[in-house]
Amino acid sequence: MSRWLRRGAIALLVVALCWGLDRLFEAFLVEYAVRIVIFCGLNAILAVGLNLINGTTGQFSIGHAGFMAVGAYGGAYTVVQLETWLGPSLTALPTFAQQAVALTSGVLVGATVAAIAGFLVGVPSLRLRGDYLAIVTLGFGEIIRLLFNNSETFGGATGYSGGRPLGLTTYTSFFWVALWAVIVVTVVAHLTRSSYGRALRAIREDEIAAEAVGLPTTRLKVMAFVVSAAAAGIAGALFAHLQSAVRPDDFKLDRSVDMIVMIIVGGLGSVTGAVLGGIFVAVTLELFRQWAEYRLVAYALLLVVLMIVRPQGLLGTRELDLAAVGRWWRARRTGGAS
């Protein structure tokens, strides 16, 4: 009982912290800076999700932008239908309640449809290994994008704006992104540390050995794939309601590559590393803006240097936690004093 009480208290604290930060950013940061912080959170969700399949399980997916697209279109469509259905009874609510009702349903639907898409793609393709799996996921990612590109309902190449001049309602704020980031990180971190996580790591290290000791490898891989796709769907739905429109061109291979860069920079297999990697990509790309057309060159150079200096990524397979940082800090202080 006290354990549940403690968990509830922590959850409340987390929500309060997200809310406080959100208010703080609103008050003191310009919109541009708030956008960067929001993208840090979105990237964290994407990276942590992808890391479960690419890092922990060792299966290489390069089509995750497709699942993000499914989540984005699914979420956006749901919210537009909900808004039409509820009409004035929704707009009469205070802003926060509107966000809570509309965005939460959008994100939940986005995550669900992305998970279903992940299951449908995963079942046939996860029998393959290595390069073959990468090629199949790449193909599926492109198929999903092209389906939206040719869909009348979703606005074709111009993208989906819900048929309104001002586009999709921009519900996404830092609070919601932070909240979903915490939820995704918590779920994935627990999964990674559970017996499932150990089984997934066993598949990564040696799939044949894992199968030999009786692990249902295909089922485990599909499960990891579905969770990973759901995370991409969550990020997609949040992304749609930040951007006011969803365009098929935003889910090209570039997006999948960006996601892979995040987890490699952070350290394959590390949950906190993935978070760091996501933040790294969002922040450096914006920091380099001043170099105009050399921005992407500088970014690529930085990645090359980083891979030479730290081929295992920022954190490798280790995890960052506050207790370890505290120990390191105390050790450094005592070291410096002596």
Binding site: I10, L29, V182, A189, V283, L320, L322
Partner: peptide
């Protein structure tokens, strides 16, 4: 649960960085 708190800590660190940056540039 500690992991969640850790992430939040990370987000905080990041947020502080962004804030400094925008404070000097804007």
């Amino acid at each position: 649960m500690r992991r969640g708190a850790t992430t939040l800590g990370l987000l905080l660190v990041l947020a502080a960085g962004c804030k400094d940056r925008s404070a000097e540039s804007g």
